[in-house]
């Protein structure tokens, strides 16, 4: 796998990786993807993809309001909060900045 392709995957995965890591994972992924080539031996004609082990239909709940986390609990693990909201870096330009 080319290093640029590894870099692209890392970006899709939202992972900042060092050059050393890019090199290692590139090598690992190539090795693993070579191994999974064995799947090409399997006759999968007409096989229904199996995303799940239990044949479940949609599971609905009644449209009723139920208890949920209060604001304090929901924010209790936030790395940055003003007590009201999660705080994130500014994502819009300021008009007079």
């Amino acid at each position: 796998m080319e290093i640029d392709e590894v870099r692209k995957v890392a970006s899709l995965a939202r992972l900042e990786l060092s050059d050393q890591e890019l090199e290692t994972y590139g090598r690992n992924l190539t090795q693993i993807l070579d191994y999974v080539e064995v799947l090409n031996e399997v006759d999968i004609e007409d096989a229904m993809p199996m995303s799940h082990a239990v044949d479940l239909q949609n599971v609905f709940r009644s449209d009723k309001r139920t208890a949920s986390l209060n604001r304090k609990s929901a924010l209790s693990n936030a790395p940055k909060t003003d007590g009201q909201f999660f705080q994130v870096p500014q994502i819009l330009e300021q008009k007079d900045a």
Partner: peptide, 25 residues
Amino acid sequence: MLGTYALSAGYYDAYYLKALKVRRR
């Protein structure tokens, strides 16, 4: 990284979808 690659555009059918069909077998 591996999962992101297997699900990414152009590779989904060759990897993830194929694996799901083998899972059925």
